[in-house]
Design a protein around this nucleic acid. Structure first.
Lengths: 118, 118
DNA sequence: TCCTTAGTTCAAAAGTTATTGAACAATTGG
DNA sequence: CCAATTGTTCAATAACTTTTGAACTAAGGA
């Protein structure tokens, strides 16, 4: 079972920019980029917002074509659509990620989750 | 007399993205980029929106640090802050403009204004 | 089967942004 | 000075977006 995603051609520039123009979603994208290749589930982002609100933001990212969401069991595995975005808008995602990496004003993900050894 | 502009350091990534995430404003930026170096006044954009509404959108662009607005007589001369944006977010504006140039869904500026020779 | 985990959906409330028209201000040309 | 041109401000409204909590679904383990 797959959730609805736009095709690469359907990805719209103003929509991508508007969706990235939100600190919570930019923080999600920055974190996804920092864990490139590792599919993450929604709960990784609970630092940023409530479960319900995350569901909303992650749907926005998916509907804009910025992320891909795959249902696996009760989880959703989320990845960046780097290739599709790069084909459609060359250089855009990379420059956004680079800028986001250096932005201290964005909320952080994962700073609370230190694996505590037993 | 100069209108208030953010300094380069004050320019915020999410705000820039949110402000660019609007078709009218993206069309303004695309047109400014196509006339690089030539300062344009507000009336050039009347194809896109009413005078009042343009005033609003142009203020958003200025306050986000995307454009510079200079008052000259009763006119406002508007230019892109390309250098400041490039320093702050390298590659971002260029990729947005390149993507906007190829976007047929964006409203067009100036298609009605053909200089009629006498 | 029952419970837990993971996430969605829905409707309401809160907040924000866009659009409008009327009134205003400032400059410039006649 | 007067009128036209250029653009702003203000208040109202319309339209969207974000956030919330409660109720829900679906899968997986005990």
């Amino acid at each position: 079972m797959t959730l609805p995603h736009p095709t690469a051609e359907q990805i719209s520039l103003p929509i991508v920019l508007a969706v990235l123009g939100d600190p919570t979603r930019l923080a999600i994208v920055r974190y996804l980029a920092s864990k490139e290749g590792v599919p993450l589930n929604c709960s990784k982002f609970l630092d940023l917002a409530s479960k319900t609100n995350l569901s909303y933001h992650l749907a926005k990212l998916r509907e804009a074509g910025i992320t891909r969401t795959e249902a696996v069991g009760t989880s959703r595995l989320i990845t960046l659509r780097r290739d599709d975005l790069n084909n459609r808008f060359p250089g855009l995602l990379d420059s956004v990620i680079a800028a986001a990496e250096g932005d201290p004003a964005l909320p952080a993900v994962g700073t609370a989750e230190v694996e505590v050894p037993v």
